[in-house]
């Protein structure tokens, strides 16, 4: 699946899109976030880090499918 990256998350991972394979069925967005934090420990040093799934803020419970659009959401700072 494709993970869209913005702001500081893009700088940490070094790309604007990250390709990630779902290795098993039933992976939740919380599982994906933990594995990303493991792979990129700098993400855990941010004030906050979360995922959006198909354009909605994720609560972590969604079961992910390959075709979902996932985005990493570092601390937002609009306005």
């Amino acid at each position: 699946m494709k993970i869209l990256l913005f702001g500081i998350a893009k700088d940490i991972i070094g790309s604007s899109i990250l390709e990630q394979k779902l290795t098993k069925d039933g992976v939740t967005s919380a599982d994906l976030l933990s594995s990303l934090k493991e792979e990129y420990p700098e993400l855990s040093k941010l004030r906050s880090i979360a995922l959006a799934v198909n354009g909605e803020h994720s609560l972590g419970e969604e079961i992910l499918r390959e075709e979902d659009e996932v985005a990493l959401i570092p601390p937002m700072s609009g306005g």
């Binding site: 702001g7 941010l46 004030r47 959401i73 601390p75 700072s77 306005g79």
Partner: peptide, 27 residues
């Protein structure tokens, strides 16, 4: 405006004379 700052995925980078950073990135 208060809710925009909390929920809308927009990120601000501040530029100074001696560098720049993404706002709220660090605790």
């Amino acid at each position: 405006i208060d809710t925009l700052k909390d929920t809308v995925p927009i990120w601000k980078r501040e530029y100074f004379e001696d560098g720049s950073h993404w706002v709220f990135s660090h605790p």
